[in-house]
Amino acid sequence: MSVIEVKDLSKTYKNGVEALKGISFNVTEGSIFAILGPNGAGKTTTLKSILGAIKPTSGEVLTLGKIPFPNGVKKVSFVPEEKSLYEWVKIPEMVKIFASFAPNFSPKKFEILSKRLNLTMKRKIGELSQGNRTKLYVALAFAQDVKLYVLDEPTWGLDPIIRKEVLDIVRENAIVGKTVVYSSHILSEVEEVCDELIILKEGKILYNGTLDKLKESNKLNLSESFLEMIKGGEK
């Protein structure tokens, strides 16, 4: 069953930037799906289309069987590229605020996650380092019991140990049948968790399939395949 169906999606922003030029892919339930590509390839635009933050210029997006724009689909939890939270509150208050509008939020789950990620609770958001903001955002997002997690650079600024912990959390969610879509520029990390992936360049799909197939057909690991394709596209 497809959790996400993207059909011939194009997006041109008001300023004329063509972020996506007709991409199509499906994400199957329970999989960990990676969206890769160099800067400006259209990764974030793809994620925001799935979320329903932006309106497709043409084509179609179905998230959990519904058109996500403009209202979003309630059973989705999103971690954006910028881990921006409300600067003026302390962490416990931020959790309270988040819980007031995030569907299916479990404070207990949040507590467990924040311990696993080694999050210090007493600080004001404004004083948090980049890494701690990421930890907090990830803990908030996964404390929501939803069907689909959409993550943009979910390990930004984290040290290797915590990064591994985040990957474990992602994997555990897949084990219980949740779907995770995520974008990262750290390929070695993606290689550790993803089942399926698309590789984007300049708004088009260069590869769409499983990681296993990619390795088998190229006899290369992910980083090598990625470089090969991105360069190949330049010829």
Binding site: G30, S31, I32, D168, R171, E172, A174, I175, E192, V193, D195
Partner: peptide
């Protein structure tokens, strides 16, 4: 499947 996936640090699909 679930136990082995956790033990080996790989996805259940795998």
């Amino acid at each position: 499947v679930r136990k082995l996936a956790i033990n080996l640090g790989v996805n259940p699909n795998t």
